[in-house]
């Protein structure tokens, strides 16, 4: 369902120097895949995730989701695709500071056809899964980094996405909570056939995914299972 072919992203730095963040990347994954992309900082894995998510335009290559080249879509259609089929977990604090916890979880509903009131119960369930039920009226500034991360993870499932693009999703979490999150991802993956692309530098996390890739200097290569 996700086909990436010869994907390339080049950044031009202020001095005019060009940096190839993603270099001729190709791979294909089926619906329900549970995979990770390992790599050091600056290896291009976050850029790759954003290219697949339609957040930044590539300099070359294609990204097809369910056969549709997403970069051939009009901006509104691409936005709708993100709203209905995808969701993101960013590596940074991505909650909106002016919205409380429940409104942050419900944020995608502000831009789609789903009615807010129909999703409130689901938002509460997701918050309960993340042990954040009691904080639904708190604002991000009143939460710890780990709590904010848990709310962002709850938000990633509010629109029942077919694809979750997660960038260092367990960055601010302790080991116990990290495992709970991975288990939750696995649960959604098995029960809802949700596809997960998880960018991480943690080999332990990557080891729990079905397939692993390694990104080095913009190039992607599969990690062969150790015998």
């Amino acid at each position: 369902m996700i086909e990436v072919e010869h994907l390339q992203k080049i950044y031009t730095l202020e001095g005019g120097e060009k940096v190839t963040a993603v270099d001729d990347v190709s791979f294909a994954i089926e619906r329900g895949a549970f995979l990770s992309i390992l790599g050091h900082s600056g290896s291009g894995k976050t850029t790759l995730l954003n290219l697949i998510g339609g957040l930044t335009r590539p300099n070359g290559g294609t990204v097809r989701i369910d056969g549709q080249d997403i970069w051939q879509l009009a901006d509104d259609e691409l936005s709708r695709l993100r709203n209905e089929k995808m969701n993101f977990i960013f590596q940074f604090a991505s909650l909106i500071p002016t919205l409380n916890v429940i409104d942050n979880v419900l944020l995608p509903s502000a831009f789609g056809s789903a009615k807010r009131r129909d999703l409130v119960e689901r938002a509460r369930e997701l918050l309960a899964m993340m042990n954040m039920a009691e904080k639904e009226h708190a604002y991000p500034a009143q939460l710890s980094g780990g709590q904010q991360r848990r709310v962002a993870i709850a938000r990633a499932f509010i629109n029942d996405p077919a694809i979750v693009l997660a960038d260092e999703p367990t960055g601010d979490l302790d080991e116990e909570t990290e495992q709970e999150v991975i288990d939750l991802f696995r649960k959604f993956n098995r029960e809802r056939q949700t596809t997960f692309l998880i960018v991480t530098h943690s080999s332990d996390l990557a080891a729990q995914t079905d397939r692993q890739f390694r990104m080095t200097a913009g190039r992607l290569a599969p990690v062969e299972p150790s015998t």
Binding site: R80, R82, F90, F92, I96, L107, F111
Partner: peptide
Amino acid sequence: RREIGIFRAMGARRGH
């Protein structure tokens, strides 16, 4: 800017 980027990632169109 980041907030706007997050809105767009969550499906906000330019018009939104």
